[in-house]
Simulated scan of single mutants.
Amino acid sequence: MSATRSALPRQALVFLAFGLVQLALDTAIYVGLTAAGLPVATGNVAGRIAGACLGFWLNGRYTFAEGGKTRLQRRHLLRFILAWCALTVMSTYLLASIVTGTSLQISWFAKPLVEAVMAAIGFVVWRQWVYR
């Protein structure tokens, strides 16, 4: 078994742990800003930016580091930004659709579920492309 393959369970577990911290931060900002009257898109992007800043550093420093070597170079950041933008567009669209179809308050409860889907997609993208 290759070193990369054997790292997968550890990476998945650490990614999940860091993701829960990011999710709490992201959701708190989203709920707070939208409850204060900001548009869904603004609240979602602001929350995701806060989570992304924390997540890029944590995942590059710990989750996907190899042999004590971090993955925080410029190329990693550029790939991260591109992937993050795509996931943020999807997340924002889903939350706006939920608000349109139901209510803002329902979107507050749906936010963690939407972000769980984004995290599952993100794990594959981060592991296979961003932090390579």
Results as ranks from 00 to 15, higher is better:
residue 1 M to R: 15
residue 2 S to G: 11
residue 3 A to E: 09
residue 3 A to N: 03
residue 4 T to E: 15
residue 4 T to P: 08
residue 5 R to W: 15
residue 10 R to D: 14
residue 11 Q to E: 15
residue 12 A to K: 11
residue 13 L to W: 11
residue 14 V to G: 04
residue 15 F to W: 06
residue 16 L to A: 14
residue 16 L to E: 05
residue 18 F to R: 03
residue 19 G to R: 12
residue 19 G to K: 11
residue 21 V to E: 00
residue 21 V to A: 10
residue 22 Q to C: 15
residue 22 Q to Y: 07
residue 22 Q to D: 15
residue 23 L to M: 15
residue 23 L to V: 08
residue 24 A to R: 08
residue 25 L to C: 03
residue 26 D to C: 02
residue 27 T to Y: 03
residue 29 I to S: 06
residue 30 Y to T: 04
residue 31 V to A: 05
residue 31 V to F: 01
residue 31 V to I: 14
residue 31 V to Y: 02
residue 32 G to F: 06
residue 32 G to H: 07
residue 33 L to Q: 01
residue 38 L to N: 08
residue 40 V to A: 09
residue 41 A to G: 01
residue 42 T to V: 14
residue 42 T to E: 05
residue 43 G to T: 05
residue 43 G to N: 08
residue 44 N to F: 04
residue 46 A to W: 01
residue 47 G to K: 10
residue 47 G to S: 12
residue 48 R to K: 14
residue 49 I to H: 01
residue 49 I to T: 12
residue 49 I to K: 03
residue 50 A to M: 07
residue 50 A to P: 04
residue 54 L to Y: 13
residue 54 L to M: 12
residue 55 G to V: 12
residue 55 G to W: 03
residue 56 F to R: 03
residue 56 F to T: 03
residue 59 N to G: 08
residue 59 N to P: 11
residue 59 N to W: 06
residue 61 R to G: 07
residue 62 Y to Q: 12
residue 63 T to S: 04
residue 64 F to I: 10
residue 65 A to F: 04
residue 66 E to Y: 10
residue 67 G to I: 04
residue 67 G to H: 04
residue 67 G to N: 05
residue 68 G to D: 10
residue 68 G to S: 05
residue 71 R to D: 08
residue 71 R to C: 10
residue 71 R to Q: 12
residue 71 R to A: 12
residue 73 Q to S: 14
residue 75 R to I: 13
residue 75 R to Y: 13
residue 76 H to A: 10
residue 76 H to T: 01
residue 77 L to D: 15
residue 77 L to E: 14
residue 78 L to W: 15
residue 79 R to P: 02
residue 80 F to T: 11
residue 84 W to M: 13
residue 84 W to T: 10
residue 85 C to G: 10
residue 85 C to Q: 13
residue 86 A to I: 08
residue 86 A to D: 00
residue 87 L to I: 05
residue 87 L to Y: 02
residue 88 T to D: 07
residue 88 T to P: 04
residue 89 V to L: 00
residue 89 V to N: 00
residue 89 V to D: 00
residue 91 S to Q: 06
residue 91 S to I: 05
residue 91 S to C: 04
residue 96 A to C: 13
residue 97 S to Y: 01
residue 97 S to P: 00
residue 100 T to R: 15
residue 100 T to W: 11
residue 101 G to P: 02
residue 101 G to K: 02
residue 102 T to L: 12
residue 102 T to I: 09
residue 102 T to R: 10
residue 102 T to N: 12
residue 103 S to E: 00
residue 103 S to R: 00
residue 103 S to G: 01
residue 104 L to A: 13
residue 104 L to G: 08
residue 105 Q to M: 02
residue 105 Q to S: 10
residue 107 S to R: 07
residue 107 S to D: 09
residue 108 W to N: 04
residue 109 F to H: 05
residue 109 F to W: 11
residue 110 A to S: 13
residue 111 K to L: 00
residue 112 P to W: 07
residue 113 L to A: 12
residue 113 L to D: 02
residue 115 E to N: 09
residue 116 A to S: 07
residue 116 A to F: 09
residue 117 V to R: 01
residue 117 V to A: 14
residue 118 M to P: 00
residue 118 M to G: 01
residue 118 M to Y: 01
residue 118 M to S: 06
residue 119 A to R: 02
residue 120 A to D: 06
residue 121 I to T: 13
residue 122 G to K: 01
residue 123 F to N: 03
residue 123 F to M: 09
residue 125 V to I: 14
residue 126 W to V: 01
residue 127 R to P: 09
residue 127 R to A: 11
residue 128 Q to G: 06
residue 128 Q to S: 07
residue 130 V to M: 05
residue 131 Y to M: 04
residue 131 Y to P: 09
